[in-house]
Design a binder for these strands. Structure first.
Lengths: 145, 145
DNA sequence: AATGAAATTCCTCTAGA
DNA sequence: TCTAGAGGAATTTCATT
């Protein structure tokens, strides 16, 4: 899928996406122009879909994170999806198989705000909320080979 | 929490973390040196915790994503957490309140692999797996104001 | 595909206000 | 926080292997 060099590049950029081509060249043992080409290809293929940031929600004032399972009331599936998208505090959402149609992650400043947001959804769906106490794995790559 | 300029910087870097100080200066209306200082402060405060990548799992060969709720058998909580950390295909994991102790995201190449991994966990825990069909929200910032 | 060197452009940092 | 300038890098091109 990915050769050893692509893997090295991706791992290195995953740790710090601002590394220069030169630095990446040293890490991967290639020359800088070769690294540039490989990155371009990885971007074009869509393997690298974005260079982005990791932000600490707590330091933005979002003291509370939760995972909400959402089961729309009959006929309300579309409406529920619209609502989720419209509520900016939902920072991730997956549509899944099973009884729950959506599983979403939510960041809020307080219990009160959590309650408010869920009330809005509860017009169209049943929800089941689990407060996040800790995140043992924040975000990591699966094996690249 | 964050003034308008910090917000602009974070939004801009969230979209493309490789933007130069100069480009960020134009976006934010500040000079490049000022941007450099603000970024340094945001990094030091921990607001920006990493510059990283967004990768498409499908293009790495991970055709299947799932969310697994994990309820350790009595006395097995530690063991379960160890197992989750040790299984590299778990790319996110949260420890939560409620009956499920952990909610984790998993990337695998096939149903067979999914089955294998879950079997390993089922020695120590009950699991409930939802296959991801679509991800309406991949990852976004909550409101910054 | 990858390399090395050259050319160019661009960026970062310091200093002074 | 800004401007300005120095100095240093980084990226890109191109000819070659």
């Amino acid at each position: 899928m990915l050769d050893a060099i692509d893997q090295a590049l991706i791992s290195a950029l995953m740790q710090d996406s601002r590394r220069s081509l030169k630095a990446l060249a040293q890490i991967s043992g290639l020359s800088a122009p070769s690294v540039a080409e490989r990155l371009k290809r990885l971007e074009e293929r869509g393997v690298i879909s974005a260079y982005t940031l990791e932000i600490d929600p707590k330091l933005l004032g979002y003291q509370l994170q939760a995972i909400v399972r959402i089961r729309p009331l009959p006929g309300k599936l579309q409406e529920v999806e619209r609502q989720i998208l419209a509520i900016a505090e939902f920072t991730e959402c997956d549509k899944v198989t099973g009884d729950d149609c959506f599983i979403a992650r939510l960041q809020v400043r307080s219990m009160e705000q959590l309650d408010n947001l869920l009330d809005r959804l509860n017009h169209f769906a049943e929800t089941n909320t689990a407060i996040i106490k800790k995140s043992p794995i924040k975000r990591r790559l699966p094996p690249l080979d």
